[in-house]
Every structure is written in C-alpha cells, then in structure tokens.
C-alpha cells in the first residue's frame, strides 16, 4: 500500500516537472489569445528563453541572471511579434511562424558563435542550476504516513519555476476575471471595436498581453535549460509550445481547465517510461513510442471529437476596425 502511494506520488511528481513549461506557456498563450492575438509563437519564445538562460548562466554562473536573460529575450521576441501583428496589423499566424523559425535558427547560430559546440551550450554543473527548494516541515512530516510522503515527495523539493508555474494559474485567473485589465483584455479579444469606442486603446491592451506572455515564456525557457535540464540543446523545446497551445484550446481558454489539460499531458509524458515493456495480455509488450505519442494523439482526438466546438475569443486573429 505504502509502496503504491509512493509510486503514484513519484509519477505525479514527474508529471508536475514535465508539465511546468506547458503550464507557463499555456498561461502565456491564454493572456495573449484572450486579448485577440493568436500566439503560435509560444514555441519560439520558449526556445529563445531556454537558450538565453543557458548562455547567461554559462557566462556568469548565476542562475538569477539566467532567468532575467530568458525573460528579457522572450519578451523582446514577444514585442517583435506585437510590432508585426498589432502595430502593423500583420497576419498573426504567419508572424508567429516566422518567429518560431527565427528562434530555431538563431539559437543555434548564436550558440555556435559563443560556445563552438554545435549549437549547444556547455553542460551546466549542478550548482549552476535552479536548486531544489525544500519546503518547511518536509523533514518533520517525513515520518507521518500518507501526508508525509505527499508533502515530501510531491509538494516539496521542486525548483523555483515549478512553483512559479503553479502560482501563475491563480494569478492569471485573478487578472483575467477579477481585474479591470482582464475585463478590457477579454473585451479586446471579443469585440475590439467596443473597447476603442469606450475610449480604451486595443493596441496597448494587446501589447500588454504579449508582454505578460513573453515573461511567462521566458520563465518556462529558463526552467527548460537551467532547471529541468542542464544546458541548452538545439530544438530543446521539442514542440512543448505547440502542446501548450493544444492545452489552451482543450481547456477552452480558461485558466483552471487549461491547468488540468497541462497536468494531464504531464502525467501521460511521465507515465511513458514507466509503461516501457509493460505486457498487455494477448498483445504483448507496449511499444514505448506508442505511449510517447499519447499526448499528441489524445489532443487530436479531443479537439476533433467532442471538444470540436471550442469557443475561441470572438476576435482572435483580427485587428480592430473591421468586422466580419
């Protein structure tokens, strides 16, 4: 019994670690898409953040500088995105794809120029990465059955970005639903003309949405290369930005359902290696590739099937001024 409990906690613990960049990116997507900007560029912003963090940590040895560099880089990219699709009313998907391509190329080129290791950054020593934070009572509760392992294994012992990701959900929820900014943001995503007519600038709102998205993507990137991983590897975002976008749609652009979707993807991801070699009666061992593909397959099925009528913000992808 205690063994199963520990196993389950370890699975969830792994799921949380894997879901962290998804949660941060999905919240980034939520804020920008609720303002009416399609954020297909999450992937590129995440990757750029990851590179900036690893490069800064390698050069300075400070994980805080790495985090700051990641946030700056991802935010700058977000502002470029905004300049193209808000200021110049460009096509949002195309400018987003362009950012993804630029990020994929530029990180490798810059990495090569700086470190000459084929686009990677040198592996980081454990001391140069985000330290695991032990929460209070982890020691004292260790002896308590059920609660002790729950606190010690699952809740305690994560790095700062994991807690930031979890904290981002209620913060974003409050911001979107309980603040003036959120009311205007949602209105800009549904009917920007109404916002303009109320004397509020849609341009400023959407830029702010992208600004917040950039910060969150930066944190996610720093986690990827200096928290979860130990250095930057080319293409290390590996579709996580797109998966976050899927979670965003699956969660219907609402913070708590989106968090649930991210955690679900995290559990599937964490379960994959554990299911390796699992024997299914009559069918034999499950190929690990099949398990790895589950989150993506599930997304396709969920989106195409009974979640086909996901209610996107009404003005998603549309600059103000022209209806229909």
């Amino acid at each position: 019994m205690a063994e199963t409990w520990i196993d389950l906690l370890r699975l969830l613990d792994g799921a949380l670690r894997l879901a962290t960049p998804l949660i941060l990116c999905a919240m980034a997507g939520l804020v920008s898409e609720r303002s009416g900007v399609i954020n297909i560029a999450l992937e590129g912003k995440l990757l750029t953040g990851a590179f900036a963090a690893a490069a800064a940590v390698t050069l300075t040895g400070s994980v805080a500088v790495g985090l700051a560099a990641a946030v700056c880089a991802a935010t700058m990219l977000s502002m470029v995105h905004g300049f193209a699709c808000i200021t110049h009313r460009g096509e949002q998907i195309i400018s987003g794809v362009a950012i993804n391509i630029v990020a994929a190329g530029l990180t490798v080129v810059a990495g090569n120029a700086l470190f000459r290791q084929g686009g990677h950054t040198p592996p980081l020593a454990p001391d140069d990465r985000f330290p695991a934070l032990t929460l209070p009572f982890a020691e004292t509760l260790a002896a308590v059955p059920v609660l002790g392992p729950f606190w010690g294994e699952l809740v305690s012992g994560h790095t700062l970005p994991v807690y930031l990701a979890l904290a981002s959900v209620p913060v974003i929820w409050w911001l979107v639903y309980r603040s003036r900014f959120g009311l205007r943001l949602r209105a800009a995503g549904e009917l920007p003309e109404a916002v303009e007519s109320a004397g509020v600038s849609v341009t400023v709102l959407r830029y702010r949405g992208l600004l917040i998205a950039g910060v969150l993507c930066g944190i996610a990137g720093a986690y990827l290369s200096t928290g979860h991983g130990g250095g930057f590897v080319r293409e290390m975002s590996a579709g996580k930005g797109f998966l976050a976008l899927a979670a965003l749609i699956f969660g219907r652009w609402k913070p708590w359902p989106v968090l649930f979707a991210c955690l679900l993807f995290g559990v599937l991801d964490a379960a994959a290696p554990r299911l390796h070699g699992l024997e299914v009666p009559l069918l034999g061992p499950v190929p690990v590739a099949l398990v790895s593909v589950l989150p993506y397959g599930l997304t396709v099925i969920l989106l195409a099937g009974f979640f086909g009528r996901a209610e996107a913000p009404g003005a998603l992808g549309r600059p103000p001024g022209r209806t229909g």
Partner: peptide
C-alpha cells in the same frame, strides 16, 4: 462584447480601480 453581462458592458472603460 459577447459573453459579457449588461453591467460589464456598461462599465467597460470606466471600471474605477484595478480591482473589478
């Protein structure tokens, strides 16, 4: 704004404070 209540629509732009 679709999905907003009458009150939210009327208040939009005149919310009086950051907390809604």
């Amino acid at each position: 704004v679709p999905g907003f209540s009458v009150l939210e629509n009327i208040v939009l732009g005149l919310e009086a404070g950051f907390r809604l």
